[in-house]
């Protein structure tokens, strides 16, 4: 199912970067389990499913600066995976690691869904599909004024039941936003259960393609696979969506996955 690009993407020294990303992911995964031990209300499985996607984008791609049009933006439209974002930000030293276990505490800045008050969080999310429209707006203005920044948006598969996704992706295609990359955490689950049981979504990649997006696939738990896809997306002359196949338990029990 996963179709990677055959051409060599990684230069030899880049294996060091992959090791670094791997280390951060391993530590962040431990952080998530500790967080869950302290606070059962975090969305652990959705966080584990998005962990490698978030870490790979943050460590390898997202360049930050004070200039809104010449920096990159990471929008976690599936805001319930916030704990994974916080864990990676803590491993990068952007938020104190000691804060992680305080998530949802009355005096903690860490909310169950991202708020811009949290250092390293670019956009407040939590209401599905809205991060995607915001990403289209940022990318449109950057392109209109000739900035060099890119916008990365992570969305879920269940999220695509929202009509606003249709509104946003048709507009992004019409504007030919080649600086917009969407990564779909394609884990086969939505809140009430399996997408197969609730509303099958096998047609969704075809819809994005028909609208005018470049459609790529990746293994969402494999850093190299994600990098191969993002590198190809960076070369695209139209908006790109990467369907990253994942399981909700991430690599904690990857052998028992039930990816659709």
């Amino acid at each position: 199912m996963v179709k990677g690009d055959a051409k060599p993407i990684l230069k030899p020294f880049e294996s060091i970067e992959i090791e670094r990303i791997t280390t951060v992911i391993e530590e962040a995964r431990k952080d998530l389990l500790v967080m869950y031990n302290h606070e059962k209300h975090i969305h652990l499985e959705s966080s584990l499913s998005s962990l490698e996607i978030i870490a790979t984008l943050l460590l390898r791609y997202i360049k930050r600066s004070a200039d809104p049009i010449n920096r990159d933006w990471l929008i976690l439209s599936k805001g319930h995976a916030a704990p994974a974002l916080y864990a990676v930000l803590a491993e990068l030293g952007i938020i104190p690691k000691s804060e992680l276990v305080k998530i949802n505490s009355i005096n903690s800045v860490l909310q169950n869904h991202p708020e811009v008050a949290v250092p390293g969080v670019d956009i407040a999310t939590g209401s599905l599909a809205q991060g995607l429209s915001i990403g289209v707006g940022i990318a449109a203005w950057i392109k209109r004024v000739g900035g060099g920044g890119r916008v990365y948006v992570i969305i879920g598969d269940g999220e695509q039941d929202e009509g606003q996704v249709w509104e946003a992706i048709t507009h992004a295609a019409a504007l030919r936003l080649d600086n917009l990359i969407v990564v779909v955490d394609w884990n086969g689950h939505q809140l009430d259960g399996s997408v197969k049981d609730i509303k099958p979504k096998d047609y969704i990649p075809f819809v994005w393609k028909a609208i005018g997006w470049k459609v790529l696939w990746a293994n969402g738990h494999n850093i190299t696979s994600l990098i191969i896809a993002v590198e190809e997306a960076l070369e695209s002359d139209k908006p790109t969506v990467i369907f990253a196949q994942t399981t909700r338990r991430g690599r904690v029990s990857a052998s028992n996955n039930d990816v659709s």
Partner: peptide, 9 residues
Amino acid sequence: GFAAGLAVA
């Protein structure tokens, strides 16, 4: 949402 993004940028 699109307008929110324009404002952010």
